[in-house]
Amino acid sequence: MTSLAPQPDVVLVHGAYADGSSWSEVIERLQHAGLAAVAVQNPLTSLADDVAHTRRILALHDGPVILAGHSFAGTVITEAGIDPRVAGLVYIAARAPDAGEDYAALAQKFPAPPAKAGLVYTGGFGGLTEDAFLNDFANGVDPGRARVLYAVQGRVSESLFHERTTAAAWRSKPSWYAISRRDRTTSPELERFLAKRMNATTVEIDSGHLSLITHPQEVTQLILAATQTVSQYAAAGGS
């Protein structure tokens, strides 16, 4: 009888306008399931900086690791995911550019999400207006919680969304994707395109952009499915 290989650890990466605490509800559930789960604190100053922070956390693990990213962090895990410790990738309403791809040009082929109009830059860094944050980025989140998230939102460098990856880990690693049907920050149609392009195991969640906060159980279940698949594959000798 073949026994399962040890469950992989989980490394969670936050996106723009957020920090690692946005994964708190998911982390609690993963820990309850017996998994080691940690969140990266990205500076959002450049893609290279965010990838470097993610790689430093990956280096703390012997492997294997499931690397999950929300929103802009999909770009980060697409680049950092080539690390040999990474056995699978989980995208939550996330970007998933190909190597060297002009993601902004790709996104323009799909309906423009309302939140985009609320991004304002000052002194080289940008954030969402209160109206855009509460109604578009955090739609579906309890209003009191949404105001707290707005108060601590991570500001992004002016160049961040225009930088390109040099690799696309999803081309060589198994991938999972959670689409947010009521997303007002990333077009759900774009999310569906990205999930299909990477041949990801895909679920759709009836949520806004912050499904990891409003629907943590569904997000956790997708990550658990990834860890179980990777564990079974390893137990079978990787064949």
Rank of each mutant, 00 (worst) to 15 (best):
236 A>K: 08
117 A>R: 08
160 L>G: 00
68 A>R: 08
188 P>T: 12
131 D>V: 14
88 G>N: 01
41 Q>V: 07
178 A>P: 04
153 Q>K: 04
196 K>I: 03
166 T>W: 04
52 A>T: 13
111 P>F: 06
9 D>P: 08
5 A>T: 10
132 A>R: 00
80 A>S: 06
68 A>M: 09
62 D>G: 15
34 G>L: 09
127 G>R: 13
121 Y>E: 01
194 L>N: 01
186 T>G: 03
11 V>E: 07
102 D>A: 11
229 T>K: 14
207 S>T: 15
212 L>W: 02
8 P>D: 12
89 L>T: 00
215 H>Q: 12
210 L>N: 11
35 L>R: 08
63 G>D: 07
92 I>F: 10
151 A>Y: 07
185 T>C: 10
236 A>R: 10
71 S>A: 12
77 I>N: 00
190 L>C: 09
86 V>S: 05
29 R>D: 05
153 Q>G: 02
160 L>N: 00
178 A>E: 02
4 L>K: 06
80 A>N: 05
30 L>I: 12
55 R>H: 08
52 A>Q: 11
31 Q>C: 11
216 P>Q: 03
35 L>H: 10
235 A>I: 04
173 K>F: 04
21 S>T: 14
78 T>H: 02
46 S>W: 12
214 T>C: 13
137 F>G: 03
6 P>E: 08
58 L>A: 07
54 T>S: 03
116 K>Q: 11
188 P>Q: 09
50 D>V: 13
13 V>A: 09
52 A>I: 10
197 R>I: 11
45 T>G: 15
152 V>M: 12
162 H>A: 15
219 V>I: 14
144 G>T: 12
103 Y>E: 15
74 G>N: 10
16 A>L: 03
116 K>F: 11
194 L>G: 04
114 P>Q: 09
113 P>Y: 13
226 A>M: 12
3 S>W: 10
204 E>A: 14
89 L>C: 05
166 T>G: 11
71 S>P: 01
238 G>I: 01
2 T>M: 13
